[in-house]
C-alpha cells in the first residue's frame, strides 16, 4: 500500500536521520563552535563503527561493553588530534586548518582500509530477535535500539551543554573568548574537551550505523559532507538545529530514494548544500555566509 510504503520509508528515514543527527551534533561543536572545517569527521564516524565491529566480532565483547570501550577510545583519539595538531593552529587561517583535516581524513580512511580490509563491516548487537510490526510497518530490534541510544545521547549532550559547568565554559569560550580568558576559564582544555566530545558523538553514530546496516571506510567522505549539510540546514551553531536537520535529511533521502530515484540519492546532500547556501537569504547568505568587510 502507498501509505504503508510512505510510513516505512519515513521510518527508515528516521533511523538514518538519527545517525545524521548524532554526527551533525558532533560536527556542530567542531564547525559551529570551534570554526574548524573538519573533513575528518566522516573518517572518525567510520572509525567508531570499525572499532565496534572489531570489538564485537573479533574480540567477542558484548555490545553493552563494547560501546563504552569504543567511546572511550574515540574520546582519546579526539584529545590526541586536538592536542597534537589543531591546538598548534588555533588562530591559523582556514586554509591550513582545513588541509590538515583533509590529510587526517585521507590517513584515517586508508589506514582503516589496510587494517580492516575492504569488506563492509557490521556491529554485532545481540538484538537479533524478530522485528516489531506496527500495522504495515516493520521495524527490527536493532533499529529500535539505534533510535533509543541516539535519543539518549542527544539528550545527554543537551544536558551537558545547557546545564553543566563544562557546558557553560564551552559557550563562554567560543562566544566571548576575551571575557572567558579574563574569567580564568582554561581555554585550551575547553577546546580539547569540545573536540573530543564532537569526535565521540561521531564515533557513536558510526557504532549505531554498524549495528543497523554496515560501515565502510569509503562512506567517510560523503558522510562528512552530509554532516556539513545538516548543520548548514539547521543553522550554524544551533544544536537543536543540527538534530532537526539530521532527521530531515534522513527523511528526505529515504523518501527520495524510495519514490524518485536511487541514482541521485547521494547527490541530495550536495544539492542541498548549494541550495541552502545560495537561496536561504536570512540565516546564511545574509549574515555569516556572505563576506563582511
Amino acid at each position: 500500500m502507498l501509505l504503508g510504503d510512505i510510513l516505512q520509508f519515513a521510518l527508515n528515514g528516521v533511523v538514518t536521520g538519527c545517525f545524521y543527527a548524532l554526527m551533525a551534533l558532533g560536527l556542530s561543536l567542531v564547525f559551529g563552535l570551534m570554526n574548524i572545517v573538519n573533513f575528518a569527521h566522516g573518517a572518525l564516524f567510520v572509525l567508531g563503527g570499525m572499532l565496534a565491529s572489531e570489538a564485537t566480532n573479533r574480540l567477542g565483547l558484548p555490545f553493552w561493553a563494547a560501546v563504552p570501550a569504543v567511546l572511550l577510545v574515540m574520546w582519546a583519539v579526539g584529545v590526541a588530534i586536538e592536542g597534537g595538531l589543531l591546538a598548534r593552529m588555533r588562530d591559523a587561517h582556514i586554509l591550513p586548518v582545513t588541509l590538515v583535516t583533509i590529510g587526517l581524513s585521507t590517513f584515517l580512511v586508508n589506514t582503516m582500509l589496510m587494517l580492516f580490509g575492504t569488506e563492509p563491516k557490521n556491529v554485532e548487537t545481540g538484538f537479533s530477535g524478530p522485528p516489531f510490526f506496527l500495522g504495515d510497518v516493520i521495524i527490527s530490534q536493532s533499529r529500535v535500539l539505534a533510535i533509543g541510544v541516539s535519543a539518549v545521547a542527544i539528550l545527554a549532550t543537551w544536558v551537558l551543554i545547557a546545564h553543566t559547568r563544562a557546558g557553560r565554559a564551552m559557550r563562554a569560550v567560543f562566544q566571548q573568548p576575551e571575557a572567558a580568558a579574563l574569567a580564568g576559564i582554561p581555554i585550551a582544555r575547553v577546546h580539547r574537551f569540545t573536540f573530543a566530545l564532537g569526535t565521540t558523538l561521531a564515533g557513536l553514530a558510526g557504532i549505531l550505523l554498524g549495528a543497523v546496516f554496515v560501515v565502510h571506510p569509503n562512506t567517510a567522505e560523503p558522510a562528512a559532507v552530509k554532516a556539513f549539510v545538516v548543520i548548514i540546514l539547521g543553522g550554524i551553531g544551533s544544536l537543536p538545529g543540527a538534530v532537526l536537520g539530521g532527521l530531515l535529511l534522513g527523511l528526505a533521502e529515504s523518501l527520495w530514494g524510495g519514490f524518485v530515484s536511487t541514482g541521485y540519492m547521494d547527490a541530495v546532500g550536495f544539492v542541498l548544500v548549494i541550495a541552502i547556501l545560495l537561496f536561504r537569504p536570512s540565516g546564511l547568505l545574509g549574515a555569516p555566509a556572505a563576506r563582511e568587510g
Binding site: V225, I232, L278, A289
Partner: peptide, 9 residues
C-alpha cells in the same frame, strides 16, 4: 561566500 562556506560549496 565566506571562506568556510566556499570550501564546502
Amino acid at each position: 561566500l565566506e571562506g568556510h562556506f566556499f570550501v564546502l560549496i
